[in-house]
């Protein structure tokens, strides 16, 4: 599994990032690692899509980014989910559930 990471399903990245951020504020690399870990390495998120997505979500007001000093005295950008982000996550999850259920039904039939 670990040798064969797949690309994320189109349009799910933002939902996964929001879900990850509900646990606690994180920086970009933290988010990427977290997604990779929880999916048992099935999904790998590279910064080429993660950072633009974070920038987009920040503009949309779903997350809030702040510069904070890390333990080894560097500056890292930490993202926090906002109230609006939580709402968006709820909506997206609901849509996603409906869609997967439908797809599943078709595959079962």
């Amino acid at each position: 599994m670990r040798d064969d990471p797949t690309e994320l399903v189109q349009g799910t990245l933002e939902m996964l990032v929001l879900k990850t951020l509900t646990l606690m504020p994180m920086h970009g690399y933290g988010i990427a690692t977290r997604i990779e870990q929880i999916s048992d390495g099935a999904f790998r998120v590279n910064p080429g899509s993660l950072l633009p997505a974070l920038s987009r979500m920040e503009r949309a007001g779903h997350v809030k980014g702040d510069w904070k000093a890390t333990e080894n005295n560097r500056r890292g950008r930490y993202y926090t989910i906002t109230e609006k982000g939580r709402k968006a996550l709820k909506n997206e999850t609901a849509t996603w559930d409906r869609q997967t259920a439908a797809i599943y039904k078709i595959l079962e039939a």
Binding site: H27, G28, P47, L51, R74, G76, R77
Partner: peptide, 16 residues
Amino acid sequence: EIEEELAFFVQESVND
């Protein structure tokens, strides 16, 4: 800012 964030990302990855 973008550059710094990316550099930080790489740094964290290397540390890891």
